[in-house]
Design a protein around this nucleic acid. Structure first.
Lengths: 337, 337
DNA sequence: CTGTTAGCGCTTTCAG
DNA sequence: CTGAAAGCGCTAACAG
């Protein structure tokens, strides 16, 4: 493992000169540069990132914080989001470090930042308490929330518009003649799940259909929950004609339940999901759902974070992304009575 | 951001004493220790991991290398493996860094190690070339392969036994009266896919059924490929009575295809998958498949890597794990002619 | 265009 | 039980 010094010695220059050519500083004589480059090649010199980090005070690492990883894991796009984050980050020469703070909830989210292992944090929403977010704000830790929000000063976030998502689904169903619309929620301790429920409630109330508690089934994102929801709904004296499932996995479970109980979807009951997982177009019937702009979410999050790392004074940035309806076959048009 | 020095000053001791209490060295007088601890508390001292790494030459980071992330992403357990790796690693105070070397194939896998950003590498198999593995071996980089193998000295790996997996499925099908058995492969540039195909071939040849090229459909892990495979197989003059799908996603696509073409599964044709994804028990029919011991794979990989980081002299370790058949309803018993 | 001087914050080594 | 000295490999800030 050769160092800057070794290269300097070999090329008969100072370490600074070597450092300069490594950094592509243009004001190095062409001749010198070549001599240095040659030495670097011969010694197979690779800069030591740790030493660099210590003296420059920049680690070129970013942590992805997964507050309650079990939830996050059940989200189908967990893998994709890591993929796109890594991709965007690598464009900036940054590396991605995974941290599941599940193991020790009392540990502050910013530990990795406090110990100087990373320059900033990307935090996947779900169940972050306000006090934990407040701690970030106070310490002025460069960070960005995904799928979570906060109006505290200095807190950046990028999120999808859960209200738009539910509105879109609701309107679609309503347009197709449904008014007795049920909902299967995700784990309500997760913000996404909660927001979607609220949006649903609002729409039910606003549309003069009225909100009926009986029409919401509290799930937990799993297919099993969707399966159970089907049983619950058909047991009702007046079942819904359509249901909105907070994610596709539950919708798939719902469909399976229907098949087991000889209920026809969409003839007897319609269902729509959220996520557009791969399987959604291979269920029977194919699932009508909402596609999330994961790629964009990741890119925006990285851009925001990079900005806040570079310039800690920058005011906070909020991004709300919209999602797109993918119409397939799990809904039928109802002729209103 | 306070440093060891600050604490030392406040507690009126040397930095070494502070360092000792931070590391829990028992030979520090109780009184002194308390004074130091108090100072640490007051100053909210957090050790600087970078400085520590520079002087101790250990980063306490491990990289997860994903050679071709698109493939890896399509594997359903991608998220889980990250989860379990992180969990096992954190037990050793290690952090997980994600690196998709996709972005620049010429870059050596060990770059992160060479630049001292990590102490070792966990490499997810798929499409690693032998020369890249050889480079690791030569440089003596602490590392472990998952889902890949190599007999080069110093190369550790943990893998599932693809032959056992396929044998198990094959025997199950055979026991149920099937002999004309087809196969849907994954992307054949991925080792897992290739090995499974070879295992299938071997069994076909060995069992006097004979190997018939017509019976293998080359897929790419996606549900779409499974769907297309169904069409292909039913188009054959003599279709298989059962097919082994290299993963569950393709099996689900296959099932959907059958439903679209009015073929009954398992009555007209049986199918088995590999992975046991959540949805596998919510398809119609529920999918018979093989469950992979992901949790164990991750733990073994971490143990192996930790050992090789600690003691570079240690001889290489090979672990082959077995998987378990999950019997559900996608297979029927055939009465042999 | 190139070099010198100081550290970054910790650990290692050797002395007491 | 405690401390002093040296240095990990690099960069920043000035000189020249």
């Amino acid at each position: 493992m050769s160092s800057l010094d070794d290269v300097a010695k070999m090329a008969k220059v100072s370490v600074m000169t070597v450092s300069r050519v490594v950094h592509g500083d243009p004001k190095v004589k062409e001749q010198t540069r070549e001599r240095v480059l040659e030495a670097i090649r011969i010694l197979d010199y690779q800069p030591n990132a740790i030493a660099r980090a210590l003296s420059s005070n920049k680690t070129m690492n970013v942590a992805l914080i997964l507050p309650k990883i079990e939830h996050v894991l059940s989200e189908p796009y967990f893998g994709s989001i890591i993929y796109y984050l890594e991709k965007a980050l690598s464009q900036h020469q940054y590396n991605l470090l995974i941290d599941s703070s599940e193991h020790g909830e009392k540990k502050e989210m910013s530990t990795l930042y406090d110990t100087r292992k990373v320059d900033g944090l990307i935090i996947i929403g779900s169940t972050i308490s306000d006090t934990r977010i407040a701690a970030l704000s106070e310490k002025n830790v460069p960070s960005v929330l995904i799928h979570a929000r906060s109006e505290l000063s200095g807190i950046n976030y990028v999120d999808i518009d859960n209200h738009q998502v539910v509105d879109c689904l609701f309107s679609y169903l309503y347009k197709h003649g449904h008014s007795r619309i049920g909902m299967i929620t995700g784990d309500l301790s997760v913000l996404n799940a909660y927001d979607r429920l609220v949006a649903y409630k609002n729409r039910m109330i606003a549309s003069a259909i009225g909100y009926d508690e009986e029409l919401v089934y509290e799930g937990d994102w799993t297919s099993k929950a969707g399966y159970d929801a089907l049983q619950y709904f058909i047991g009702l004296s007046s079942p819904p004609t359509a249901v909105i499932s907070s994610n596709d996995h539950m919708a798939i479970g719902f469909i399976k339940g229907a098949s087991d109980y000889n209920i026809s979807i969409p003839d007897d009951i319609s269902v729509v999901g959220i996520d557009d997982i791969e399987i959604a177009s291979f269920s029977t019937p194919r699932l009508t759902t909402i596609r999330q702009p994961i790629h964009t979410i990741a890119e925006m999050a990285v851009e925001t974070l990079m900005r806040s790392i570079k310039d800690k004074g920058v005011r906070s940035s909020q991004t709300i992304l919209h999602a797109e309806l993918i119409e397939r076959e799990s809904c039928k048009t109802l002729v209103r009575a």
